[in-house]
């Protein structure tokens, strides 16, 4: 049966993660993973006249890179799952207009990367697509202005803040071919333990990540030792510590194999990084840029990527509501042929 346990999908055909594209902004390019991304765009405006248009360009670019690597065109892709952080997911919608691939828009905040990848694998596994693309983007300036203050406003951010990653990541999933395999996906529940401060996203999302990771182990009957790496999307340094403590309370000691994309993407000495990276592109670019390259180099055989999303809106936040969060996890294994 393709569903195992309560929330985990097993993909019997083991869809191939055929190709991936990652593109980031200047700050991420200067970070410790700068070399691993397919492209670094130095211009935050990406030659456009607004931040929103720039984010769209990042989205389109990541998809084009992923397609170009395997010599495919958009016409051959059966479905695109995409989403971003902006109202009405305009980055994904408008990029999908350009890409002209049958499109399903998603909103899972920063969990969109793995939400999309899980759905792409599901669609391919079920035979509804030969090629499915999953992509997401975020942009520091568009997120700042939607969720916080104008970019040039001189407000002071607390050390628990996170820095929204500028960039986009796209993954192309196929029925056949060589490359890493997508074997499982665990779809998370929305968890809210009452954090209300939008400057404490990591702590707010940690319980959702823990819930999904625990559920994954329970559903699959696996232990942490069966993974070379278990990586969360954007808990950053504070949320990561909280997740570690919560997992240890449940008797899971993940140790060095437990990492977070928000911590990996920046050097803590970089300016205004605070607790670490966040945004849809954080998990997407680190996974599709850095982690897949490590897999291809043979350093990692099986990883669990758990993308975490804070499902708040500026409105819900101003009305004093706490932050509901969700996390979706996908298992990627090194392919036999690769």
């Amino acid at each position: 049966m393709p569903r195992i346990g309560k929330q985990t999908w097993e993909f019997p055909s083991r869809p191939v993660l055929l190709s991936a594209g990652s593109i980031v902004g200047p700050k991420e390019g200067e970070g410790p993973l700068g070399q691993d991304f397919d492209a670094v765009e130095e211009d935050m405006y990406f030659g456009q006249d607004s931040w929103e248009k720039a984010e769209r360009r990042f989205f389109e670019q990541a998809c084009e890179i992923a397609l170009k690597k395997v010599g495919l065109s958009g016409e051959e892709v059966n479905v695109l799952y995409g989403g971003d952080l902006l109202n009405q997911i305009i980055s994904a919608n408008f990029a999908a207009r350009t890409l002209a691939i049958p499109f399903v828009g998603l909103f899972g905040a920063c969990s969109t990367s793995m939400e999309g990848l899980a759905l792409a694998a599901l669609t391919v596994d079920a035979g509804y697509a030969d090629y499915a693309l999953a992509a997401t983007s975020s942009h520091h300036a568009t997120a700042e202005r939607q969720f916080r203050y104008p970019t040039e406003y001189g407000g002071q951010k607390p050390p628990s803040s996170q820095c929204t990653v500028t960039g986009s990541g796209a993954a192309l999933v196929a029925k056949t071919g060589s490359g890493p395999r997508i074997t499982h996906a665990t779809i998370g529940k929305v968890v809210d333990l009452g954090i209300t401060s939008p400057f404490e996203m990591g702590p707010a999302m940690a319980p959702a990540a823990v819930d999904t990771i625990l559920r994954h182990f329970e559903d699959t009957g696996r232990t942490p030792e069966e993974y070379d790496l278990i990586v969360t999307g954007d808990l950053a340094s504070i949320g990561h510590k909280i997740a570690v403590e919560m997992l240890e309370d449940q008797g899971y000691y993940l140790g060095d194999r437990f990492k977070d994309c928000g911590i990996l993407i920046y050097d803590p000495d970089q300016e205004e990084v605070f607790a670490g990276g966040s945004g849809c592109a954080c998990c997407a670019t680190v996974t599709y840029g850095h982690l897949l390259k490590r897999m291809l180099r043979g350093e990692l055989d099986r990883i669990l990527v758990c993308a975490t999303g804070a499902l708040l809106s500026p409105l819900s936040n101003q009305q004093g509501e706490s932050i509901p969060c969700v996390a979706h996890a996908v298992v990627i294994e090194r392919g036999e042929e690769s």
């Binding site: 628990s160 333990l193 504070i238 909280i242 919560m246």
Partner: peptide
């Protein structure tokens, strides 16, 4: 949870 999170938030 809030009590635990407080300990970690600088």
């Amino acid at each position: 949870f809030k009590k635990m999170a407080r300990r970690h938030v600088p």
